[in-house]
Design a protein around this nucleic acid. Structure first.
Length: 565
RNA sequence: CGGGCUGUGGCGCAGCUUGGCAGCGCGCCUGCUUUGGGAGCAGGAGGUCGUCGGUUCAAAUCCGACCAGCCCGACCA
């Protein structure tokens, strides 16, 4: 294509409200434009990248037996009511009505539709199946941010595996694991697989594919020794041990005027160090008022609680707390309460601890967890911390990293097939719900992740596989007939050699053209100007700085073909 | 949803305190000169100052409400 005839609106200045590098550079480079919060148009350059990402995904999905579909974006509410998600995911679901007043849903994902399609399968003999599409999702996120990294409308590749039993699901799950590894490697991303929470999707195993980046909003724990990797929502570790000092007798109340925080309580003395306190949090777990207790210096990872129960989990309001416990947050405790108590295992066996007395301005010391707390259930619900010991190997310790989640694979099981009647007859002739898996990759987010990990002060550095063009011909003097002719010839020759080439034929000064070529990040640049042309040469430079050379014009096509093969 | 900030031409911003001609840089158009790292000169186009309402002789500026966007947090398939 010719730059002069292509809509590539590069900006000289950074957009003021873009912070993340990918956000800044994709806008400045003329790849995307924002329409509203969390909603972007792909411009021609962005679309070329998105298409390459999509094509890589297609190739790898097809290679593991995927069949490409295209399911609609607007769904009848009925499907979502059948699976219960019409009510469950209220909040980010956009609901519409058509002219007859029928309820409609904008697709958040496509489990319902594909399970519905799967209901046409009749026999286990037709399984396994692997169905996928690349289609728009709309999620009305509370806080879209960072350009394409977290948006409300985006294109996702989602695939759905259909099997007669869990063994088949395992096979397809592992096939996806391999395909995703290959996809991200081809995109130039160092992806890491981490154990993850399945969230509202339901189902058992789930693995996230993440890319390390400080811009990421997910956090993972990694063991440098054994390779254990888990999302913080899921990660486990061995906390440091605390040796309790002896205490004779029952808990002893003591006055703590004005003390409302763990930190304030530690000022009472060494006996009240944070690790010697019991943190008491009041939640509604399902419909039940419940106290969650942890060591004072530990933080609650609420997703672990959510994952372990069926119903909704939410913090109790201050009013509810006062009504139930007779004290305000800051003076709460679980000693002798009549409500269910869920305790973090780091409290097991602990004694001589300090906790609230459920009376404002009063705490208790000498609390023995086993003796004094009516623990109904032990649940690891602690957020792991940097440096804690790994549980998967004897000597490793965990480090925490920020990451961008680029893919997620789930074992769904029978939830959707049961709800939507996707059953087949099994070997014995009895109806059996299909066992499903679902697997997603965000196309735009993957693009943005590539930019996050591959840019410099001048702009983007696209890997060849996803670059909008392979090479840009920078004509320094397009008004010079000799230069223009050499450029046109090269342009035609490269094009017919199947090399994607952009001809910068704009009547701009050299500095502008160099700066733009670097900003948009095309991997190779051929510079053609009067100086080189006299010697019959062009200058070839790689965007990543790995190469700068002059070569005769008639060797250019061959040289580039060799470089990109 | 809570907290903070911001809305003035395509982009970046000043003007608002103390009401009185809507400005600057970049970009854009025309012409001439220039051309191996974001050119110079001359001439020009382009703005409901986020929206609605109020105060006032007069509102970008003061007051109110709303909307939108960004950042932090909560949340997140």
């Amino acid at each position: 294509m010719r730059w002069s005839r292509t809509f590539i609106p590069t900006l000289r200045d950074d957009p003021a409200d873009a912070v993340a590098a990918s956000h800044r550079l994709l806008i400045r480079g003329g790849f995307i434009r924002q329409l509203m919060a969390g909603s972007y148009s792909m411009l021609p350059l962005g679309m070329r990248v998105a298409t390459k990402v999509s094509d890589i995904i297609r190739e790898e999905m097809n290679a593991i037996g995927g069949q490409e579909f295209l399911a609609p974006v607007v769904h009848p509410a009925e499907l979502w009511k059948k699976t219960g998600r019409w009510d469950d995911v209220e909040g980010i679901m956009v609901k519409l009505e058509d002219r007859r007043g029928a309820d409609l849903v904008l697709a958040l994902t496509h489990e319902e539709v594909f399970a519905h399609l799967a209901s046409e399968l009749n026999s286990y003999r037709e399984l396994p199946q692997l169905w996928y599409h690349l289609q728009t999702k709309f999620r009305d996120e509370a806080r879209p941010k960072s350009g394409l990294l977290r948006v409300r409308e985006f294109i996702m590749k989602d695939s759905y595996s259909l099997d007669i039993g869990p063994d088949g699901l395992d096979v397809q799950f592992e096939a996806h694991r391999g395909a995703y590894d290959r996809i991200f490697a081809r995109l130039g991303l160092d992806s890491i697989q981490v154990e993850a929470s399945s969230g509202n999707m339901g189902g058992s195993d789930s693995v996230e594919f993440v890319v390390r980046s400080d811009t990421g909003e997910d956090r993972v724990a990694l063991c440098g020794n054994c390779g254990y990797a888990a999302n913080l929502e899921r990660a486990v570790s061995e906390p440091d041990q605390v040796r309790d000092e002896p205490w004779e007798g029952p808990p002893l109340p003591f006055p703590t005027p004005g003390v409302r925080t763990i930190a304030a309580l530690t000022a009472m003395g060494r006996f009240a160090a944070a690790r010697r306190q019991i943190k008491t949090l009041a939640y509604y777990v399902g419909d039940e008022f419940t106290l969650l207790v942890l060591r004072g210096d530990h933080d609650l990872e609420v997703q672990k609680v959510v994952d372990s129960v069926a119903g909704v989990v939410r913090p109790a309001t201050e009013g509810e707390i006062v009504k139930r416990l007779g004290a305000h947050p800051g003076s709460l405790g679980a000693v002798g309460v009549e409500y269910p108590v869920i305790a973090d295992p780091a409290l097991r066996g602990r004694s001589n601890m300090v906790t609230g007395a459920n009376e404002d301005d009063v705490h208790l010391r000498g609390v023995d967890v086993a003796r004094d707390l009516p623990v109904a259930r032990w649940l690891d619900m602690r957020s792991v911390r940097e440096g804690e010991a790994c549980l998967s190997c004897p000597s490793g310790s965990l480090s925490l990293s920020r990451v961008i989640e680029v893919g997620h694979i789930f074992k769904l099981g029978r939830r959707y097939s049961e709800a939507l009647g996707a059953t087949v007859l099994d070997e014995s002739g009895r109806p059996a719900p299909i066992v499903m898996g679902s697997y997603g990759i965000g196309v735009g987010r993957s693009m943005a992740a590539v930019v996050e990990v591959s840019h410099d002060g001048r702009g983007i550095i696209w890997p060849l596989a996803v670059a909008p063009f392979t090479v840009v011909i920078t004509l320094l003097r397009p008004d010079n007939p000799v230069v223009a002719e050499a450029g046109e010839t090269l342009y035609r020759d490269l094009d017919s050699a199947g090399i994607e080439v952009l001809l910068d034929d704009r009547n701009e000064r050299p500095g502008v053209k160099f700066a733009d070529a670097e900003l948009v990040g095309i991997p190779y640049r051929l510079t053609i100007g009067p100086r080189g042309i006299e010697a019959g040469e062009a200058e070839l430079a790689a965007r990543d700085g790995s190469l700068t050379e002059s070569l005769p014009l008639d060797q250019v096509v061959e040289r580039l073909a060799a470089l990109v093969s």
